[in-house]
């Protein structure tokens, strides 16, 4: 027997409902768009016409972006692609004026492009854009050759400057707080905003001059920028080599670079690494200037450093 088709209305074919996006599809779309927006520009500052697999980028973009009556999908997304790179490069120019002066415009821009391609921002704040730069330069020496050591020193100094500018300040310890402490067991912390650096080039005065030339750091905002800002590049020919020891720190909310002696540097580094006071002294003596290492002088160092607020309780001691 031939079965008749059901005739009730509920079984009639429904008009196809528009397919709705799922959360997974939203995530895939955002990954694809982010990949497009974050791809390096061509030397002419345009969106790369060739996609990662060799197909035309315009075809990829046309798959998810609508054109309008004036712009193609490619041209519309290119606005975001250009803005992404201009924004990052502007921020990098402001945060690393010394490195830019050392490397020159072209090499600095190439370094920045390679760096952001390898290490896209992993922080909500652009303040941290350079957090992996020192490691990146160490692992990509060709990008800064032949100024390798100079560039590395400058990157370390400029990151220390950023840290000194707005890192946390713990409650300082005064000399009176240390009076009854046992030097064999006393462990002092150093302020989070303080960075100790051994540099192969005397870059402190150089960077001060560069920064004075540059002016104030810009703020985050949600505005598009019309064009990249350019800085003068008159400090390009800096070459003298000489080992210096620096404390990059903050005092009354201004950043300072304080030169240290080798034994001071060794002493403070040992304290930062967690050595008790007595052992830190021993390391300072080992650093080679024991003849000048007098108790009266040490007292003066500690008075000076305490006055600057450099000492605090060690973080692990606080958490206990």
């Amino acid at each position: 027997m031939k079965r008749s088709k059901p005739t009730d209305s509920s079984s009639k074919p429904k008009p196809p409902s528009p397919k709705r996006q799922t959360l997974g599809e939203l995530q895939d779309l955002q990954r694809l768009m982010a990949k497009t927006v974050m791809r390096p520009l061509t030397p002419a500052a345009k969106m790369n016409p060739c996609w990662t697999d060799g197909t035309p980028t315009r075809n990829v973009v046309a798959g998810f972006i609508k054109p309008n009556d004036r712009l193609t999908a490619f041209e519309r997304l290119q606005l975001y692609n250009r803005q992404y790179w201009f924004r990052l490069l502007d921020c990098f120019y402001e945060d690393y004026p010394g490195l830019r002066a050392v490397l020159g415009e072209r090499k600095f821009t190439r370094l920045a492009r390679e760096y952001f391609s390898a290490c896209p921002s992993a922080s909500f704040t652009m303040r941290n854009l350079g957090q992996f730069l020192v490691h990146f330069i160490e692992s990509h020496p060709k990008l800064v050759a032949p100024e390798n050591q100079l560039a590395l020193d400058m990157a370390r100094l400029e990151w220390a400057h950023i840290e000194a500018f707005d890192n946390a300040a713990e409650t300082p310890i005064t000399p009176d707080d240390m009076l009854d402490a046992d030097p064999q067991s006393l462990r002092l912390g150093l302020q989070p905003y303080l960075t100790l650096l051994r540099l192969n080039y005397p870059l402190d005065d150089f960077l001060i001059a560069v920064r004075r030339d540059q002016g104030l750091r810009h703020e985050a905002s949600n505005a598009m920028e019309n064009q990249r800002k350019r800085l003068p590049n008159k400090f390009k020919n800096f070459q003298r080599s000489k080992t210096i020891y620096l404390a990059v720190h903050r005092h009354r909310n201004s950043v300072f670079y304080k030169r240290l002696r080798a034994d001071q540097f060794a002493l403070l580094t040992a304290l930062r690494e967690g050595s008790p006071l007595e052992k830190a002294f021993a390391k300072a003596v080992e650093s080679g200037s024991a003849a000048r290492f007098q108790p009266k002088q040490i007292t003066k160092w500690f008075q000076d450093w305490s006055a600057l607020g450099w000492f605090c309780h060690r973080v692990e001691a606080k958490s206990k």
Binding site: L23, L26, A34, A122
Partner: peptide
């Protein structure tokens, strides 16, 4: 703050990227 997106897989574009106007996007 803005009705936009700008990060994916922990990577930040530091831009205010436009939303696809979908129900899934509105819900999340």
């Amino acid at each position: 703050d803005h009705l936009c997106w700008g990060s994916v897989d922990g990577r930040y574009t530091h831009d205010l990227l436009p939303m696809p106007y979908t129900f899934a996007a509105a819900k999340v």
